[in-house]
């Protein structure tokens, strides 16, 4: 996928060589105003002293990072131990987001494959159908999901009426509900990149494999999957990263009993804590983790391309 974009890009560069700087201006401006500036501000804030009830005092301080990594007891005067609270919260978020990603992959991959193997003229219709639910606001979809899943809700009523279960399944306010909510929120981000990859896959390769007596499983594993891997990885990143920072699904479907990274950060700005530097520090740590993940991916991609070339 990356290679295709690059070769397309070089053709464009030649045609519009003189105006290249100008054409890039909007992108640069948008990125620097909407991404670089807020992130730098956050980075600076995470190293400042907190002001009581929100705000910062312009004095350098490592207190926010200290709070994240060291436990000094309820009253802050004990010998520092490793603080597990925030590591636990981060771990829980990673785990929930990971489960949601696997769920999306399990459902999204066959769906994408199905769409890509339809006759060409009907594919846009299937893609269109996938996106329809996402025209509705995320909050409303999450609330509806809660309504469907709750103990006296339609989902449980249905299962009871067809005799599958005797008493309602308790789903709302569990971790599973959160995973389900995240899966539902971000499913199209999994389907669409995989669809784009599978659509460009040359199915005569599968036929050739079959001619050479490869089983269907081997064809899928050795021929199709390596060819569409970039799409699968892009889909996984697009589901995993926003799931980690999400707080709507955990709050509404999970009952907000346990902080996720997103709700922990929100509490620092909108809750009683009013601890802006700590909120900024937690955001920076989250961002660093995501960045490391993406760098590993990028390096592997580069290495893969080298061995191919």
């Amino acid at each position: 996928m990356a290679a295709g974009a690059a070769s397309g890009g070089s053709a464009t560069t030649d045609t519009y060589k003189e105006s290249r700087t100008w054409l890039l201006m909007p992108a640069w401006l948008t990125l620097s105003i909407l991404v670089l500036a807020p992130v730098s501000m956050m980075l600076v804030y995470s190293f400042l002293t907190k002001e009581f009830r929100g705000g910062v005092i312009w004095e350098f301080s490592l207190a926010a990072y200290d709070q994240f990594f060291f436990d000094r007891g309820l009253f802050g005067d004990e010998a520092p131990k490793i603080e597990w609270t925030y590591i636990l919260i981060f771990w829980r978020s990673i785990w929930q987001a990971g489960a949601a990603t696997l769920l999306s992959l399990a459902i999204g991959f066959p769906t994408a494959y199905f769409i890509a193997t339809r006759p060409e003229h009907s594919r846009p219709l299937w893609v269109f159908l996938i996106t329809i639910p996402y025209w509705v606001n995320l909050l409303i979809r999450t609330v509806s999901m809660k309504f469907l899943l709750r103990d006296q809700g339609p989902f449980n009523d249905l299962l009871i009426s067809i005799g599958l279960i005797d008493s309602p399944l308790h789903i709302v306010n569990t971790n599973f509900a959160v995973q389900l909510g995240l899966f539902y929120s971000y499913l199209p981000f999994m389907v669409l990149p995989i669809y784009a990859a599978v659509e460009r896959y040359n199915f005569s390769l599968s036929e050739a494999a079959a001619d050479l007596y490869a089983s269907k499983w081997v064809t899928l594993r050795r021929i199709l999957l390596p060819a569409v891997k970039p799409g699968v990885i892009a889909g996984c990143i697009l589901v995993f990263v926003p799931s980690m920072g999400s707080f709507l699904a955990p709050d509404l479907l999970g009952g907000a009993k346990n902080f996720m990274i997103g709700s922990l950060i929100e509490e620092q700005f909108k809750g009683n804590a009013g601890n802006w530097p700590f909120g900024a520090a937690a955001s920076m740590i989250l961002m660093t983790m995501v960045l490391i993940l993406l760098l590993i991916y990028a390096r592997q991609q580069a290495r893969a391309e080298k061995t191919e070339g």
Binding site: L74, T85, N258, F259, E267, A273
Partner: peptide, 17 residues
């Protein structure tokens, strides 16, 4: 006050960790 509020924040985080 700021000192007690810091402990309250800690208790609240403990409760929801």
């Amino acid at each position: 006050n700021a000192e007690t509020q810091a402990v309250y924040d800690k208790i609240w985080t403990n409760l929801k960790k």
